[in-house]
């Protein structure tokens, strides 16, 4: 009898502990979600309502008005804001960069894994060493070279082409290929008369799909969110403004801020990426620990 009592007591303590932990987790999850929920609700109330009730937990019906007020009307927040142009430009940059990053990283790591050549180890060491160099350190020379010397202000070339060289992605893909890409397959393909490049395209890439998918998601998100590089290259051409730059301009409007329109603009910039995230959250959360860049 006594033993049972002890056991019950222990179970009770464990139960109380896990309820306490659960409560803390719920609280933290709420801290993560509530700002976003308020944003969505506020985006659907007009500026006048928000000037009295700045925090809303129930959606209203003024999203259309707010959407129009971002770029048109008397209190236009930013005349050049066009959500479709913003999406389009961000999509072009993020999409092209992602394709280049995963393709060339796979190519580089394939070259480093499959072939045996003199400078292979040196090349790999260099990639490891440069992985930690922060962008901020090279950006002075980058801007002076791109904008000053080559005259590429407002061009997408300095934003897209550098994606070919992504040391962290190469590092991750090489690890993956080392562990789960059998070299015998390459031999077999050679015996069957398959060219080297074709082996890479039609055998290596399909076999590395999981790694490529994870890295593609991260590369896309990183490029979609990149404000630092985009803002130092895209200087004046409003037609080429990407989503982050547009948001920054809308919010920079201090004279007659229409809170509803501003919330709507922020919501429009956040929602696509949140939807993508929720659809792919399994891969993203699983991939974070495998290699990401922190701030």
């Amino acid at each position: 009898m006594e033993n049972v009592g002890v056991k019950d007591n222990y179970m009770l303590i464990q139960r109380i502990k896990s309820i306490g932990c659960f409560a803390v987790c719920v609280l933290l999850a709420a801290v993560c979600l509530v700002p976003l929920w308020i944003m969505i609700c506020n985006a659907t109330h007009d500026g006048f309502h928000l000037s009295v009730n700045p925090i809303n937990f129930i959606p209203g019906g003024d999203f259309r008005v707010n959407f129009r007020n971002i770029s048109e009307g008397e209190m236009a927040q930013f005349p050049d804001f066009n959500v479709w142009t913003g999406y389009m430009n961000s999509l072009i940059i993020a999409g092209c960069s992602t394709v280049l990053t995963v393709f060339f990283s796979a190519l580089t790591s394939y070259g480093l894994t499959v072939y045996n050549f003199k400078v292979r180890d040196t090349a790999y060491t260099i990639i490891l060493a440069v992985m930690m160099i922060p962008v901020q350190v090279t950006s002075t020379g980058f801007v002076q070279f791109m904008v000053g010397t080559l005259g590429l202000a407002n061009s997408y070339i300095p934003l897209i082409l550098p994606a070919i060289a992504a040391p962290a992605v190469v590092f991750y893909m090489r690890q993956y290929m080392k562990s789960s890409f059998p070299l015998d397959i390459v031999e077999a393909a050679r015996i069957d008369g398959c060219g080297e490049f074709r082996t890479f395209i039609s055998i290596a890439i399909p076999m590395c799909k999981p790694a490529i998918a994870v890295q593609a998601i991260f590369a896309f998100v990183a490029n979609w969110n990149n404000y630092y590089t985009q803002n130092m290259i895209i200087l004046s051409d409003t037609k080429r403004y990407t989503m982050p730059i547009m948001i920054q301009n809308v919010l920079g409007q201090d004279k007659h801020p229409d809170a509803g329109a501003q919330y709507a603009a922020v919501a429009l910039s956040i929602i696509p990426i949140v939807i993508i995230y929720l659809c792919l959250s399994k891969f993203i959360v699983g991939g974070v620990a495998l290699g990401g860049v922190k701030e």
Binding site: L33, M39, V250, V266, I270, S281
Partner: peptide, 14 residues
């Protein structure tokens, strides 16, 4: 993990 995925510009704006 959700806040980490959102554009920093939008977070600051919000």
């Amino acid at each position: 993990y959700l806040p980490n995925i959102i554009t920093a510009v939008s977070v600051a704006a919000l």
